[in-house]
Amino acid sequence: MFSSHLIRLTLLFSILMISFSCDPEDDPSDEPLVYSSIQAARDTIFTGDTTRVWVEATGYKLQYFWTVEKGDLLGSGTEVTYVATPCTIGLNEIFCTISDGNDHEETKSVEVSVF
């Protein structure tokens, strides 16, 4: 008697768990990639100076790929520090490509002027 109740309870709990876990609205892999912005703390700096650059985005298993043609980028993830080495005089575009676990990706850039 007791064991049949236990089996029923276990089954009920299992069904509840499966139904919750299969709810498509709560599946994190369906979370869309929303790349809101890329910003630099200062858009004009001198050589030898630095500025913070960061991105705001939401999504599933996000990865952040940073590149710049002139100058150095320190750090990783959602925020890096841009270092204006001597070769950076002029306008410099810093790119961040964000990709998610569903193979979607988006690229944005921000410009920093170096004097």
């Binding site: 790929f65 940073w66 590149t67 100058g71 150095d72 750090g75 990783s76 890096v80």
Partner: peptide, 9 residues
């Protein structure tokens, strides 16, 4: 080459 997904200068 990249280090931690940041391309090296």
């Amino acid at each position: 080459r990249r280090i931690d997904d940041v391309r090296l200068p």
